[in-house]
Structures are given as C-alpha cells and as structure tokens.
C-alpha cells in the first residue's frame, strides 16, 4: 500500500519544527520561545477541536511545551517532531478533558479568541459557520479533519498521530466531510452563485 507524500508546505513546516527542536536541544530552555512562536497557533487550533474550549486548549498547549522545554532531547530524537508535538498536545487535551469536563453549547463559540483582518470582515460569518459545524462533529472525526485540512497531513501521518490505521483515518475523514457537506451545502451553493454573479 502506498501513500502520497505530504504537500511541500507541510513538509517545510515540519522541517522548521525539526530545526527548532534541534536548537532547543542545543541551546536549552531559552530556545523554547522560537518553538512557541512557530507552533502555538496550530497546537491551540488542534487542541481546541478536542477540548471544545480554547482556555482548556491553551492549558494543554502550555503543559505540552513546558514538558518539551524540560526534556528537549525527546523532541529532537524522534523521527517526526511535529507529529510528536501534535500527539503530546492531544494527550494533554484528553487529560484535561477527563479532569474537568465542561458542558458546552454546540453552537456557542464565545470561548474562541478570534482575529479577522479588516479586509476579511465580511468572511467572519462564514468562518464562524465553519467552526460551529466542526464543533458539531464527534471529536474522532473533527481531529482528522483538522489534521487533514489545516495541517495538510497524509492519512498515514494522521494515523501515526492518532494511533489508528490509515484506513480508519480516511474513513473518519470521509464521514466528517459528508456531515460538513450536508451542513454547509447551502453556504457552498450560495457562495458559488455569488461567485458567478460577481464574475458576470
């Protein structure tokens, strides 16, 4: 069974994480700020889909990076540091979720810290719709969607992070996309028609 290679930008980011991990191993804890700047956004984004609460997700990311700073050799020695970081963030998120379960309203996004450039303000509602739709998915499916689309990982890589088989990852992704498709179908069609009108 062969799997396609990750996209170039995903491989480049993975290389940057590897470089940062090497610097961390060589320079010690003082080099952790580089790794924070590089990965915090992606880790928080991934952890938020698991905890469904950004504050808990940030706690998970904090615990992950503090542990990495204490033992930088672990990150440097592993074959894929970025996958290792994602796996650690996932484990910390699940721990927090087990320790302090929260009741979340599915459509509620008030915990999210968002940013939207001025020229993207008109897209904000669509972003919120998408985040709301992702939150309606089961965690097992939403984390596959996040890794596949936002982290541009292959199913083999996703399987490595989530400790499942590539076929299971692909299956979950397919189910998730089907659900999201049905939820956002109207939005897609309206966007397509608006796109057509705009070009005409």
């Amino acid at each position: 069974m062969s799997h396609s290679n990750p996209p170039p930008h995903a491989a480049a980011f993975s290389d940057r994480v590897r470089t940062s991990a090497r610097q961390l191993a060589e320079l010690g804890e003082d080099a952790i700020s580089g790794l924070i700047d590089l990965t915090s956004l992606r880790l928080v984004r991934f952890a938020t889909t698991i905890t469904r609460n950004q504050h808990d997700a940030e706690d998970a990311v904090q615990a992950t990076l503090v542990k990495i700073a204490a033992q930088p050799g672990r990150l440097h020695q592993c074959a894929d540091p970025w996958a290792f970081l994602l796996q650690m963030a996932r484990n910390e998120s699940l721990l927090i979720l087990r320790r302090r379960p929260r009741w979340n309203l599915i459509g509620d996004l008030c915990d999210l810290l968002t940013r939207c450039r001025v020229d993207e303000l008109e897209r904000e509602e669509s972003y919120r719709e998408i985040w709301r739709a992702i939150r309606t998915l089961p965690t097992q499916q939403s984390e596959v969607v996040v890794l596949k689309i936002w982290e541009s990982m292959t199913f083999a890589e996703i399987a490595g992070v989530l400790e499942i088989s590539p076929s299971t990852a692909a299956s979950r992704y397919r189910y998730a996309i089907a659900k999201l498709n049905s939820q956002l179908r109207g939005k897609i069609e309206s966007s397509a028609s608006e796109d057509l009108q705009h070009h005409v």
């Binding site: 924070i36 956004l41 940030e58 904090q62 810290l113 968002t114 940013r115 669509s126 919120r128 998408i130």
Partner: peptide
C-alpha cells in the same frame, strides 16, 4: 468545502498571555 474549511484555519488565535 475543503477550501472553505482551510480558509477558516487562521480565524482562531492563541491568547495574548499564552
């Protein structure tokens, strides 16, 4: 749909104090 979801990836940002 994937493009739509991809575009929303950077909508959430970590807190200033993180």
């Amino acid at each position: 749909l994937e493009d739509l979801i991809r575009g929303a990836g950077n909508y959430v940002r970590p807190g200033d104090q993180l």
